[in-house]
Nucleic acid binder design. Structure first.
Lengths: 138, 138
DNA sequence: TACAGCCTTAGAGTTACTCTCAGTCAAGAT
DNA sequence: ATCTTGACTGAGAGTAACTCTAAGGCTGTA
């Protein structure tokens, strides 16, 4: 059993956010002790994990709540849950593709600046060697 | 030369957002025609592209403005711009890693639901075959 | 008795849009 | 000559998902 502080450290989610998510109905199974303090079980950590996963792919909290509610509802919702997971996976894959493209651009810029720095150093004695690319400001 | 509507389509950014970004000082080079209408050049599209790139990796608008201002300032800011690009690239790489991890979880869940669906269909005549994983709700 | 750690509700602040007016202007079609 | 379209502006409300502070309360330990 873990306190909210421990869960915050283990899962790298702020206590604020964990309480916010709890209030949003994302963790319906968390037990409380005699003093009303949340006691996260290992299984509860799995719920934090899936919520984190859905959030990190940009799933809205409303849709996360929907998924949780479907889980609670039981076996009759399995197909809908399966579809949610599948479409989330597709979303994650297209995000991967997007980040790859952005990485290409960033690597191009990185090399561009590396060359620029090299040339500028040479400029110390040869000011004619400057190169500019059209995408860069004067 | 492109109108804002065309740029919106080409770059897949809403006109609202383009004007918002323009007002934020992200496109200092856009020319206007006699009627004050923005005329995006191909070079301006490159600026939209880098802004999109920085945003998609989660760079704050404040930092994007900083980068643009450094570009305007000229050669003396090349090293700082290089560092920004490098750290942004690192950020993108760690986001890739994160998405990969989330994909692992989503694929695990996907298979889990596939099995569940298979077993539930068999349950039609054999109700004893049900399997549940502890991470799933009743 | 002080303090740390947990709890609650309420509410303000933040970021980056997102959208809706309301009003202006100019070019082209009817 | 008027109407429609597409662009512009500024103001301002709304949104999501936090993020943080404040105020107050309980409990177990030093």
């Amino acid at each position: 059993m873990y306190t909210i502080k421990e869960v915050s450290k283990i899962m790298d989610v702020s206590e604020h956010t964990l309480r916010f998510w709890a209030k949003s109905g994302f963790f319906p199974f968390i037990k409380r002790d005699a003093n009303n303090i949340r006691q996260f079980s290992d299984n509860d950590l799995e719920w934090v994990k899936i919520v984190k996963c859905l959030r990190s792919v940009g799933t809205e909290n409303k849709s996360i709540k929907r998924y949780i509610d479907l889980c609670i509802a039981g076996d009759s919702t399995i197909e809908e849950r399966y579809e949610i997971i599948r479409s989330t996976k597709q979303k994650a894959l297209s995000q991967m593709e997007d980040i790859k493209k952005q990485l290409d651009l960033l690597e191009f810029k990185e090399k561009f600046y590396q060359n620029l720095i090299k040339n500028n150093l040479e400029d110390t004695w040869n000011p004619m060697k400057r190169i500019k690319l059209d995408t860069e400001a004067v």
